[in-house]
């Protein structure tokens, strides 16, 4: 019981520090902006640990963070294998192939008004569908290996990417197009100097959405069948064995991968679309 009281105390302290920081004189500095969410996160972790121990919650229901960390450190090798299988082989290869295919399709579609008007509503429709549902079919076609996971990812990322790229390619003003006309620029020149740069913010928006979808696709597809490794496999089998420390470790790996993946795409976006109105503010 004392541990629970400690948890409440910890909350009060963490919250108090944050209130002081967030309303203090240094509230707009980078350090405080970083510190406040970190303190919040650490407070939650600390309370989790204290309450789980204090109330003697069964580790089968909710293991304390310390146990998850220990389990994580113990199984680094296994988790690395799962990471390679699910993230690098399944998600990343499908992501690159799917987004690439969608980009090329968008360039082709863009030349024909008929195709654009036909495919755009269809793509918008498909992008809203629960495409993860195709996972059992694709696992049946491509086997239990990473290829079927990549196939699910390709299907999941294809339409959001297509819709975003097509929308981006028409994101030029009539004045910009007229300018290119007065230069008698060719289709390729207009594409390279005007329409692709103007499309970049949309392309990156698609890439960011798809980075999350890719991980979801790769993990869920493993619930329908996989070799004896992979994050989805690890989660579903470790639950069967009631090894919750391992489950949480696998979840931690997926969460970290997702954030890093997204962060890398966002970094590339900042590098290439610094000129866009949405990024200029801080400079």
């Amino acid at each position: 019981m004392t541990l629970v009281i400690f948890a409440v105390l910890l909350w009060a302290v963490g919250f108090g520090v944050n209130v002081v920081l967030a309303n203090g004189p240094a509230r707009d500095t980078g350090a405080v902006r970083l510190a406040v969410p970190l303190i919040f996160g650490l407070t939650i972790l600390g309370m989790w640990e204290l309450i789980v121990r204090g109330m003697q919650v069964s580790t089968v229901i909710l293991p304390p963070p310390s146990l998850i960390a220990a389990s994580f450190a113990e199984n680094l090798g296994t988790l690395w294998g799962d990471f390679v299988q699910t993230i690098l082989k399944g998600a990343l290869s499908g992501y690159i192939f799917g987004c690439g295919a969608a980009f090329v399709t968008a360039l082709l579609v863009d030349r024909s008004d008929y195709l654009r008007r036909g495919l755009l509503p269809l793509g918008n429709f498909m992008a809203a569908l629960p495409i993860v549902g195709t996972a059992p079919i694709l696992v049946m076609w491509f086997g239990f290996g990473w290829q079927s996971k990549a196939a699910v990812v390709v299907l999941m990322v294809y339409f959001p990417m297509l819709v975003n790229t097509v929308a981006g390619l028409s994101e030029t003003t009539s004045m910009q197009r007229d300018l290119m006309r007065t230069y008698a620029a060719t289709w390729g020149q207009t594409l390279w100097t005007l329409r692709l740069p103007a499309a970049l913010p949309f392309v990156f928006n698609g890439l960011k959405i798809c980075s999350t979808l890719a991980l979801i696709g790769a993990i869920v597809a493993e619930f329908f069948g996989s070799p004896t490794l992979g994050l989805g496999f690890r989660i579903s089998t470790s639950i069967g064995q009631l090894d919750l420390g391992m489950v949480w470790s696998a979840i931690l790996v997926s969460a970290l991968s997702g954030t890093v993946f997204y962060g890398l795409v966002a970094l590339a976006e900042r590098r290439t679309t610094f000129w866009h109105a949405s990024h200029r503010g801080g400079r």
Partner: peptide
């Protein structure tokens, strides 16, 4: 938003 929550 960046993590695959379905894993949970």
């Amino acid at each position: 938003q960046t993590i695959p929550i379905v894993a949970l």
